[in-house]
Amino acid sequence: MADSHASTPLAHQFEDLEQQHEAASLGMWIFLATEVMFFGGLFAGYTIYRNLYMPGFDVGSHLLNVTIGAVNTAVLICSSLTMALGVRAAQLGKRHALLTFLILTMALGLAFILIKLALEWRHDYLEGFAPGLNFTFAGPNAKSVELFFCFYFAMTGVHALHMVVGMGVLSVLLVLAWKGHFGPERYNAVETAGLYWHFVDIVWIFLFPLLYLIGGRY
């Protein structure tokens, strides 16, 4: 992705397009490995505390809105589909289809973020579930419920931040696609951005059951 702006598809340090393509792809996979470790720290902490404070975490989980979480899960899965179709369109050099799918992906991503912000976080804040700001929940396991909400906001917050970064990347791709930058010889940027998008999607696929469903109301 680093050299997608070069005037010829092949950057000077590479011997051929295949080498360049393999390097870009491997680079993104390695970056995703760092992301796995980054989220891994959060997931490890969550797992430990969930085992230590199971009742409080169950209570916290019940306070979340499963319907909104499920809708957002569906929205993200759809966005992964449109992203994958966008990558295919770039490989085939279909500029119009690529533009359509990029816009669709961004619209779905935006929908996810808006639902998260305007419906969920706002609601949680108004209910007094925000640790450090206005946490007012009272009950037998109030401390562990607060800890649950620490993780809820930290994990969904970091995830949402990754969505925002992804939106930024997609908007750059959109401008480049508009200019007819991509084609069968040059689609590395779309493909690697797609990998990133799918990864952020998969993180949510793990977050949703861990945070929303684990309280025993399947």
Partner: peptide
């Protein structure tokens, strides 16, 4: 910043 307490024993953190 927010005293969220993932490592803070006062909130059950470790």
């Amino acid at each position: 910043l927010f005293h969220v307490g993932i490592f803070d024993p006062a909130v059950g953190g470790d």
